[in-house]
Computed example of a mutant assay.
Amino acid sequence: MKQLLFAALLSLSLAACQKDKQEPQPDFLPAETKDWLILRAPDNNAVEAVAGDIDGTLTIATRNKIYLTKDRGKTWLAGDYEGNFFVFGLLQQQDTLIAMSQTMGYQPSAQYAIDAVQFSLDQGLHWRKYVDKRGYRNELQLSRNRFTTATGTEYRIEYSQTPVSSSSTAYYVESIGIETSAGQHITLPGQHRLNSIYFDAKSRLYIASSAPLCGMGNDFKFCGGEKGTLYVSKQPLL
């Protein structure tokens, strides 16, 4: 009887372990604070660009991958974007989403995504090569770190400059939050490298960034994994 009981308990234990192996908990489930929805990328890269709407279809780019979510970041679907080109911007023009593969300008100055390479007609699920027959390819550009509202207020990534050493004229450029031309400063719950900002049609702010950081400058390192982070303001800011 004792042997049968032991065998039954062992079987249940192994079944439980097997279930745990079959149903791992993803480390990119969304979270939230009082002011922010916090989404994590499905791969180990920073979020570079954003398009769409978190209440509908939201599209993000991480290096040379593009993903969509229709359930506010709980699950992600990979688009069929292929190529060696990194994606630094997602430019929406009516029903067409355009992937931009290069940047122009340097932080902390104005920085733009340029060079259209592929386009999508279904918010990023399927992609085709962007064929430039009218000379527009190099004219298209999308601001990455600044956004000017209809009333003229500019939202921009705020940077700090930290000397590499006490005797050096070189310095680290670090992003510390969002500032406006009206003097407002918006801070985030965590420390990140901020890559781009975006506003949806409902005036909510999206901030594309790296994974959380536990140090900057000489002490730079990721903490809690390397999956990029996307912040979405719960309330409209414009």
Rank of each mutant, 00 (worst) to 15 (best):
Q93P: 00
I157W: 14
V50Y: 12
F220P: 09
K129N: 13
D43N: 12
A170P: 00
L77S: 06
L39E: 02
G79Y: 09
A211M: 02
C17G: 09
A150N: 13
N138R: 10
Y231E: 11
A201P: 00
W127A: 05
A46H: 15
V232R: 12
F147L: 12
R72N: 01
L213A: 06
Y159M: 07
A150Q: 15
M100T: 11
F147E: 03
K234Y: 06
I54T: 05
Q102K: 13
A49G: 12
S209A: 15
L205N: 08
Y198I: 02
W127Y: 00
Y155T: 02
Q22G: 01
H192S: 03
L39M: 12
N44F: 08
K129T: 11
Y112D: 05
Y231L: 11
L97H: 06
Q111L: 05
Y172M: 07
G73Q: 01
W127D: 09
A211E: 02
S160G: 09
G224V: 06
Y172D: 09
L12Q: 11
L125F: 10
V117T: 14
P24M: 11
Q93K: 15
D20C: 04
S167L: 11
E154L: 03
A49N: 12
Q123W: 07
I54P: 04
D27W: 02
T96F: 00
L5H: 08
V117H: 10
G152M: 12
S109A: 13
A116T: 07
S160C: 05
A78S: 13
S160H: 09
Y112T: 01
Y172N: 10
G183F: 08
I60R: 10
T148F: 00
Q161D: 01
F199D: 08
S210P: 09
Y159R: 09
T162S: 06
E32M: 03
H126W: 08
G56A: 13
M216N: 07
S167Q: 13
G228Q: 09
W36A: 02
Y198W: 05
A99R: 12
Q235A: 04
T96Q: 13
C223T: 12
E48L: 11
I98F: 07
L39V: 07
G56K: 15
A8L: 15
L9H: 08
A182I: 02
N138P: 00
G215H: 06
T69F: 01
K2T: 14
T69C: 01
D53M: 10
S181W: 06
Y206S: 01
Q25E: 05
T57A: 01
K227N: 15
Q118M: 12
D53A: 11
P212D: 04
A61P: 06
E48D: 04
T33N: 04
L77Y: 05
I178W: 13
L29Q: 11
T59P: 08
Y206N: 02
R134K: 14
L125M: 14
Y112F: 15
L238G: 05
Y172F: 15
F222P: 04
L9A: 12
V173Y: 07
N138W: 08
L125Y: 11
A201S: 14
C223A: 03
P108S: 11
D53F: 06
T151D: 14
Y81E: 03
G225F: 05
A99D: 07
H192I: 03
Q18H: 08
S120L: 08
P212G: 05
V117C: 13
D95F: 00
L230C: 09
I66V: 15
G225Y: 05
R146W: 02
K74M: 00
L205W: 08
N145L: 09
T69A: 01
